[in-house]
């Protein structure tokens, strides 16, 4: 049900009223210009590195000797980086976007048919969050760093990461959807 009711709303979202283009096209062009401007002004956008830098900040507070001995935390450095401010900006941008939207953002949307209760959704969100950061750190970047910034800069690593991500992303999303038909 959530999918059936969610999809028509996509085209009905009253964004960019002055534009005859769909939101994805209008904001896609804007985001392209912004991501290029970012490389001109300070560097390519990237989000996932902030997570281990946050772990590094916690470790330095609670177990400084471990933080100094862990080569990865040393390499990632402190949170005093522009990327941290980018992540703060995402939080603000999401807040502003939701307030500017006439349509109310749902506090909770079920994603897969197997999610019978909010607890199921929270569990899947947690598992998903765990795997995306684990995977992103293995690869050295995520959707923003590897796919958006990476392919924008024509980096080979960005193309490889995108192929891996969409391969298992498509398979896992389709499998979780098919569980309804199987009665699981």
């Amino acid at each position: 049900m959530s999918h059936a009711s969610g999809i028509p709303a996509v085209t009905a979202v009253p964004v960019a009223r002055t534009s005859k283009y769909p939101p994805w096209a209008f904001y896609g062009v804007l985001f392209g210009v912004v991501s290029a401007a970012s490389i001109l002004l300070w560097g390519p956008i990237g989000v996932s590195g902030t997570y281990p830098r946050f772990i590094g900040a916690l470790m330095r507070a609670f177990d400084p000797s471990y933080a100094e001995a862990n080569p990865y935390l040393v390499r990632m450095g402190s949170l005093l980086k522009p990327e941290t401010w980018l992540v703060v900006g995402l939080l603000i941008g999401g807040f502003i976007g939701a307030r500017a939207n006439r349509e109310k953002t749902p506090k909770l949307e079920m994603v897969h048919p197997g999610e019978a209760s909010p607890a199921n959704r929270y569990r899947n969100a947690f598992i998903g969050g765990f795997l995306i950061i684990l995977g992103a750190r293995i690869a050295g970047g995520c959707t923003s760093g590897h796919i958006i910034s990476g392919i924008t800069q024509l980096s080979i690593s960005g193309f490889i990461f995108a192929i891996g991500t969409f391969a298992t992303g498509i398979i896992s999303a389709k499998m979780l959807h098919a569980r309804r038909a199987a009665g699981v």
């Binding site: 998903g128 991500t165 896992s172």
Partner: peptide, 12 residues
Amino acid sequence: GGLVFGVGFGVG
């Protein structure tokens, strides 16, 4: 990393 990321992307 991309393959692991994709599973998390699909599930979450």
